[in-house]
């Protein structure tokens, strides 16, 4: 961890040889440091612990009870998990979450990186575009979802009208079709997220040493070779970070889907988070919903840790 840590707080005792009195002073100093340090962290930590850490711990307990709307909870062991394995809706939700991720992660990665490379050039107007591109990312999901819903409407929506103008006789039904609903959601989420990841890539691109590019060009490398042999390796820390964030954010996708499709049509866009929401807040099966939450928790943690290990091995 690259922390520039404080030298001793008092700043006075830059001592060489530890004498007993000095040692006592040091331990007193250490205690004081701990006290001062905690006093800084505490106001935030109290809230953080109560509202994040405690719920995470309680989650595991709840997942092994049949906690319901009356707050009565009996220990049921792994029953909830057994039920999950046999639950068709849960399997659909898990599959849809992965399906969404498989579409969303590579697409967003490619679009964001492509845009970043383009905006890293010296074309006119890039400065404006760089900031404008992440406006979708900071506008509300509700507004975005409603607007896109209407853009996507099969008969009267502008999107299908454009497609028809291009000679497509039977444009997709988008959110009304169980085959096209998920791709439609992916299009919107990619549109929304690309600006954010583009900024991350752009920041990484600023750090690629110019000399490397010059040297590669001298050696006769063409643009494509320079991209794969100079740009990509130098971007490694950024691509890693982007992949980790993209993965976690894909696994937890929820609000966009909730407003756009509510999981439909049928269960074609039902995802894990919505499964948890429905079981918990609509059907008040808090224990069962917690078991599904534990599944989501481990999905995210496992994949993140795996990505870390893979990254470590590659950089070793």
């Amino acid at each position: 961890m690259a922390t520039t840590t404080a030298t001793d707080v008092a700043g006075t005792d830059v001592a060489a040889g530890p004498s007993p009195s000095l040692r006592r002073r040091r331990s007193r100093l250490a205690r004081r440091n701990a006290l001062v340090g905690w006093s800084f962290i505490l106001p935030n930590f109290v809230g953080f612990a109560a509202l994040t850490l405690v719920p995470i711990v309680v989650l595991f307990y709840m997942s092994m009870t049949n906690w319901n709307v009356f707050g009565t909870a009996n220990w049921v062991g792994l029953d909830n998990f057994q039920r999950l394995v046999g639950d068709g809706s849960f399997r659909i939700a898990l599959f849809n979450t992965l399906y969404y991720s498989v579409l969303h992660i590579p697409l967003t990665f490619a679009v964001a990186l492509g845009l970043a490379l383009l905006l890293n050039s010296k074309l006119r107007g890039v400065a404006f575009f760089r900031t404008a591109a992440f406006f979708p990312y900071i506008t509300s999901i509700v507004a975005i979802a409603i607007v896109w819903n209407l853009l996507f409407s099969p008969d009267y929506g502008p999107i299908n009208e454009v497609l028809r103008a291009f000679g497509l006789e039977n444009p997709p039904g988008w959110l009304t079709s169980s085959d096209w609903a998920m791709p439609a959601v992916v299009i919107v989420s990619t549109w929304r997220d690309m600006g954010y990841y583009m900024i991350l890539f752009l920041a990484g691109l600023q750090t690629v040493p110019r000399e490397l590019h010059e040297a590669a060009r001298m050696d006769g490398a063409n643009a494509l070779q320079r991209f794969f042999n100079v740009t990509m390796p130098s971007l490694r820390p950024t691509t890693f970070f982007v992949t980790v964030m993209l993965t976690i954010n894909s696994f937890k996708i929820f609000d966009l889907i909730l407003v756009m499709t509510e999981g439909g049509p049928g269960q074609s866009t039902l995802v894990l988070s919505q499964f948890i929401y429905t079981k918990g807040f609509e059907e008040s099966q808090f224990g069962y919903a917690s078991a599904a939450s534990v599944a989501l928790f481990f999905l995210c943690i496992t994949v993140t840790v795996a990505q870390f290990l893979a990254n470590k091995r590659r950089s070793a």
């Binding site: 961890m1 962290i41 930590f45 953080f48 109560a50 509202l51 994040t52 850490l53 405690v54 719920p55 995470i56 309680v58 989650l59 709840m62 906690w67 707050g71 980790v244 976690i248 696994f251 937890k252 929820f254 894990l272 988070s273 948890i276 929401y277 918990g280 807040f281 808090f286 919903a289 917690s290 939450s293 534990v294 989501l296 928790f297 995210c300 943690i301 993140t304």
Partner: peptide
């Protein structure tokens, strides 16, 4: 402690919204 803070990045809010709501 800081590691714990960082670790929570990988934990989506959706996974602990239920116990949090109960609390």
């Amino acid at each position: 402690l800081f590691l714990v803070y960082i670790g929570t990045i990988a934990v989506p809010w959706q996974s602990y919204m239920i116990p949090q709501f109960i609390l």
